[in-house]
Amino acid sequence: MKINQNTVLQGKNVILVPYTPAHVSRYHEWMQSEELQHLTASEPLSLEQEYEMQQSWRENDDKCTFIVLDAEMWSRQKTTEEDCMVGDVNLFLTDSEDPTLGEIEIMIAEASCRGRGFGKEATLIMMSYGMTHLGLTTFEAKIGLENKASIGMFKKIHFKEVGVNRIFQEAILRMVVDEQERQWLLEQTSHVDEKNYNVMKLQKQVCES
């Protein structure tokens, strides 16, 4: 999605940056993992196909993607975005009859970064962005039934289980953003700083020069 191609969302533990060709190689390495393929219901792609996928995601109006960086690692000297990548977060706007519905997906690919609150913060930041910038008022998550940790995380941030897809063995969770939930979500993400992507990279270069 082009709307976020120059947007950075900086939180306490994570920084969300747009998915660019510079991130593809690391992302491709992640997706060779059978565990991640299973958790994300994905098929392995060649590196060339991964670059094509990145470009299509950038152009498509129905998919908003950010790469999740470790904020503490990014603050260190001489670290690149590729060094700091821990996962990605996505919003799918695929219901043509309801443009206010977004399906959210979070992946913390680096095992050492799981259980540290990265997924929760990245998800909340993405939801706030979807609400304020894309006009979304309902969020849906489809999670494999065996992924108890992810299901538990979504329930902690006010999602409710509304069904189970037995064919795909997925739990379907949903959050409707009424005024109370809107205020709660804004409070949870009040610390987030929205920046220009090119400016952030320039600042990093200046600090290290």
Results as ranks from 00 to 15, higher is better:
Thr138Asn: 10
Phe139Glu: 08
Phe139Pro: 04
Glu140Ile: 13
Glu140Val: 14
Lys142Cys: 02
Ile143Trp: 01
Gly144Val: 08
Leu145Gln: 06
Glu146Leu: 15
Glu146Cys: 13
Asn147Cys: 12
Lys148Pro: 03
Lys148Glu: 12
Lys148Gln: 13
Ala149Ser: 11
Ala149Met: 08
Ala149Phe: 09
Ser150Glu: 04
Ile151Trp: 03
Ile151Phe: 12
Ile151Gln: 13
Ile151Gly: 08
Gly152His: 02
Gly152Arg: 10
Met153Arg: 00
Met153Gly: 02
Phe154Asp: 06
Lys155Tyr: 05
Lys156Leu: 11
His158Cys: 12
Phe159Glu: 03
Phe159Ile: 09
Lys160Trp: 06
Lys160Asn: 01
Glu161Gln: 11
Glu161Leu: 00
Glu161Lys: 04
Glu161Ile: 02
Glu161Asn: 03
Val162Cys: 03
Val162Leu: 08
Gly163Glu: 08
Val164Thr: 15
Val164Ser: 11
Val164Tyr: 15
Val164Met: 15
Asn165Trp: 13
Arg166Leu: 08
Arg166Lys: 10
Arg166Ala: 04
Arg166Gly: 10
Arg166Ser: 10
Ile167Cys: 05
Ile167Arg: 11
Ile167Tyr: 11
Phe168Arg: 12
Phe168Lys: 12
Phe168Asn: 03
Gln169Gly: 02
Gln169Trp: 04
Ala171Trp: 00
Ala171Thr: 10
Ala171Asn: 11
Ala171Arg: 05
Ile172Lys: 03
Arg174Phe: 02
Arg174Tyr: 03
Arg174Ile: 11
Arg174Ala: 07
Met175Gln: 13
Met175Gly: 08
Met175Thr: 07
Met175Trp: 13
Val176Thr: 12
Val176Asp: 14
Val176Phe: 05
Val177Phe: 09
Val177Pro: 09
Gln180Arg: 15
Glu181Leu: 14
Glu181Pro: 09
Arg182Gly: 14
Arg182Leu: 14
Arg182Lys: 15
Arg182Asn: 14
Gln183Ser: 15
Gln183Tyr: 14
Gln183Leu: 15
Trp184Leu: 14
Trp184Asp: 09
Trp184Asn: 10
Leu185Val: 03
Leu185Gly: 02
Glu187Thr: 01
Gln188Trp: 07
Gln188Pro: 00
Thr189Glu: 02
Thr189Met: 09
Ser190Asp: 04
His191Arg: 09
His191Gly: 06
Asp193Pro: 00
Asp193Phe: 05
Glu194Cys: 10
Tyr197Ile: 02
Tyr197Arg: 00
Tyr197His: 02
Asn198Cys: 07
Val199Trp: 00
Met200Asp: 00
Met200Cys: 05
Met200Pro: 04
Met200Ala: 03
Met200His: 11
Lys201Pro: 03
Lys201Cys: 08
Leu202Lys: 15
Leu202Val: 14
Gln203His: 11
Gln203Leu: 01
Lys204Ile: 09
